[in-house]
Design a protein around this nucleic acid. Structure first.
Lengths: 195, 195, 195, 195
DNA sequence: AATGAATGAGCTTTCATTCAT
DNA sequence: CATGAATGAAAGCTCATTCAT
């Protein structure tokens, strides 16, 4: 039993590494099997196919990512503090797992629509989390109610996502979470100097 | 002469469509040839290989996209108006060419690092354009000089990019450029209501 | 183990046949696979590529050819008898394997320089064998030391090679090894009647 | 008229060069056209197809080769002198045209049976020339009548052919016609020292 | 006669998946 | 459960040849 669970995790970890290094299309199942120290066929005892493996990677890893952020948010009561937590954790979590960051920012986007849809469904959980903060902010009159929450969410997620992508493309040559302060300020107060 | 130019454009347009519908990897060269009403081999008279065709699509189409936006910005002298133009044109131009939007937002990201690098080099022109507005804004004390221009750029581009991606994924069920006003407001004044 | 060895041999034999019938360039890998009763892909489990398969055919078959001749020569102590063995075996071995003869005399020469070089390296072993007989003959004063051994080798190999080629081209309508006696006499005593 | 003849010769010369450099299969018709300073299509006004071009090259160049040798032989009345002329001219003619030598010794053998047959038919003229010397020698009791003339021819041609092939493979690092003397001696008197 | 743009048939190789052991 | 040898479909690219100009 435990042995099975371990093998499942072995394959999952190997998949993250290989997808990160080679990208989805160039990642060979046999390579993942080799890195996981199992036979090629064994992978198919745990996963339906290569796509399924990718989705499982995403579910598992992003699920954990979202859980961490949710947990962090729970510790704060103030909406703005929650938002800051989100920004901070989004950046620091991905910075601490470069392989995962490469997968989420570049490689996962190299897949078929069918997959993309499933990925979006998983990502939706994260969007819901962001949305809940926004709604709370609007209820507390901290965030303007005249702005559509989806527009706000796109700004928050888009800014964070692009920030991480830039960092990944730059080959992680600078510190990511150090930008959290500036990003928070920008998101909250906007570009314009004085008003 | 003109005939060759036309054939080149035929292939390019067909490539945009096919890449949009099937994505880079599943787009068959023979499919592109068929849609362009040319023989498979003809494509190789105009493009070195499939990758080259993808890059050409990007260069041509994104080049035109950037030119349009640059032109629009030139018409404005005020930094904030320039930013608004950028937001407005980014959204309306992609809304008017859904195929291109699909390619830029989803399919172009489905390629190898080698290609990604070339694509980033082309995209850099757009980043430079955004950067120039930011710098001007900082010189005129409209945008805070304490914020790193790259962080600002990530927010602006990230917000716009994510907005378009959401719209593409939703299968274009709503109007994109109508969000321009709210996005402008968010970018300039931030999330917080009054301060 | 044994099964793998068998499959390897199956493919090798099929390759000899197909190369013999169609020549290197017109021999399709799929044809070889079909004749070997394996899938196309299986060939690539045993050989790197088509070229590699050709070289393996050559190494295996010519290697065996050379071994047989070497073995035959060992049985003789007299230089002239050794030479006779060589002539006799060269002709009778190829006569007994017409497919192989076609490959060595015609098809193997239909390949790229890179391959040709490798083939020549293998053939070199045979040349060395011939050379060793010549040197021994010269040491024993049976063969004139004033004649360059490479010139002698070219005569011996060239005569045998052309004899086999003529026979292959004639579509094997006569007995090859029956010519051995006359060839031996010619090589040893030359054309001129009495001197 | 003359212009046409010149163009024909241009193409033929270009073909020799390109076949020599790339071999039959890797020689592109467009390359030959380029080197001949004509359009691709022009070649098909003078030759039926690529094979036909190869055969024409062979006919033209080997025809000339055979004519030269025949002419040289005519100057001699003595059979042994005629044979010596043949050996000498075979080697010196090919040595003076390395491109042609590469084509005849290596590249021409890289073709389909259909071509090979035609090539053999052309080569047959050369064989007939050799045969006529042998027959004359046998009539004059200089060459033993007990030896089959085809066996003799194979020795003479095989020796010369292999000598040239060795020289081509060695990348022409030594003088070819300097071997003529030793070859003549070997052919006439054989390997054995004293008899 | 000459051109050269266009054609499209043809083939090697990869790799996700299966299944006998 | 696990293996890994075997499978075979699938597709990018080349280049001899054609034909409208």
């Amino acid at each position: 039993m435990n042995k099975q669970k371990r093998k499942y995790q072995q394959i999952l970890s190997a998949a993250v590494s290989v997808f990160a290094q080679y990208g989805y299309h160039r990642a060979q199942v046999s390579k993942i099997a080799e890195m996981a120290n199992v036979a090629d066929g064994t992978i198919y005892l745990y996963f339906k196919n290569k796509e399924d493996l990718l989705i499982a990677v995403f579910e598992e890893k992003i699920g954990h990512f979202i859980d961490c952020i949710e947990e962090g948010i729970m510790k704060e009561t103030n909406v703005l503090d929650q938002l800051y937590r989100l920004v901070d954790l989004h950046l620091s979590l991905l910075e601490s797992k470069p392989d995962l960051a490469v997968v989420t920012q570049l490689e996962l986007r190299q897949s078929k629509y069918v997959i993309q849809e499933k990925l979006n469904r998983i990502l939706q959980k994260y969007f819901n989390l962001i949305d809940s903060i926004i709604v709370k902010g609007q209820e507390e009159q901290i965030i303007s109610e005249r702005i559509d929450k989806y527009v706000v969410r796109n700004m928050i997620f888009g800014t964070l996502d692009q920030t991480v992508t830039s960092w990944v493309i730059s080959e992680q040559t600078y510190s990511l979470h150090e930008q959290a302060g500036q990003i928070k300020q920008l998101l909250l107060q906007g570009l314009v100097n004085y008003r």
